[in-house]
Simulated assay, not measured.
Amino acid sequence: MRGGGGGMDDDERVGHAQIPNSFGHELRACLRCRLVKTYDQFRENGCENCPFLDMDKDRDNVVSCTTANFTGIISLMDPTRSWAARWLRIGRFIPGCYTLAVSEELPEEYQGMCQDNNVQYFPPKRP
């Protein structure tokens, strides 16, 4: 993964992110890219946009890098052509389900991991 946008290069791109297999209380959103999946899906496969967060290797990273507190869900089939994806700053991520907003920030140590991987992190906007 390269570049400031945080998206994947064409040769690294996965077809799409896992779609949540349940829409109950077990849904979580990545604090960096806002991808929405279940806790178990993050634990088993990590975040397709943020593999450097190693959520599939360390259960604590899933808890630290995701939240159950988010607002709304949008499904994107072609983020590069979606005005909503551009407005939400997720137009360079892979197709999948995303939250409209999270209220928590990614912990500082993980923000450092973003910097180390030349990936931009945008903290949530404050009301």
Rank of each mutant, 00 (worst) to 15 (best):
M1V: 04
M1L: 06
G4T: 06
G5L: 06
G6M: 04
G6D: 04
G7S: 08
D9R: 11
D10P: 08
D11A: 04
D11S: 07
E12H: 05
V14W: 01
G15P: 10
G15A: 10
H16I: 05
H16V: 13
H16N: 15
Q18S: 10
I19H: 10
I19M: 15
P20C: 03
P20R: 00
F23M: 15
G24N: 12
H25A: 15
H25Y: 12
L27Q: 11
L27Y: 03
L27S: 11
R28C: 08
A29I: 06
C30E: 03
L31Q: 07
L31N: 08
R32M: 01
R32Y: 02
R32N: 04
R32L: 00
C33G: 11
K37Q: 11
K37M: 10
Y39N: 07
Y39A: 10
Y39S: 06
Y39Q: 04
D40G: 05
D40E: 13
Q41F: 02
R43C: 12
R43P: 03
E44D: 11
E44H: 10
N45A: 15
N45D: 12
G46M: 02
C47S: 13
N49T: 00
N49Q: 10
N49F: 03
P51A: 04
F52A: 07
F52L: 05
D56T: 00
K57S: 13
R59Q: 13
N61P: 04
V63P: 02
S64V: 00
T66Q: 11
T66F: 06
T67V: 09
T67S: 15
I73Y: 02
I74A: 10
S75E: 15
S75C: 12
S75G: 13
D78E: 14
D78T: 11
S82M: 03
W83R: 08
W83G: 07
W83C: 08
W87D: 14
W87R: 14
W87H: 14
L88M: 13
L88H: 01
L88R: 02
R89W: 01
I90R: 00
I90M: 04
I90C: 04
G91E: 15
R92E: 11
F93A: 09
I94H: 14
I94A: 14
I94R: 14
G96Y: 01
G96A: 06
C97E: 14
Y98I: 00
Y98F: 05
Y98S: 01
T99C: 15
L100E: 12
L100F: 10
V102S: 08
V102M: 03
E105Q: 14
L106S: 07
L106E: 05
E109D: 09
Y110H: 12
Q111P: 00
Q111L: 00
G112D: 15
M113Y: 02
M113N: 02
M113D: 05
C114P: 05
C114I: 09
C114S: 10
Q115Y: 09
N117F: 03
V119L: 02
V119Q: 02
F122K: 05
F122L: 08
P123V: 01
P124H: 01
P124S: 00
K125C: 06
P127F: 14
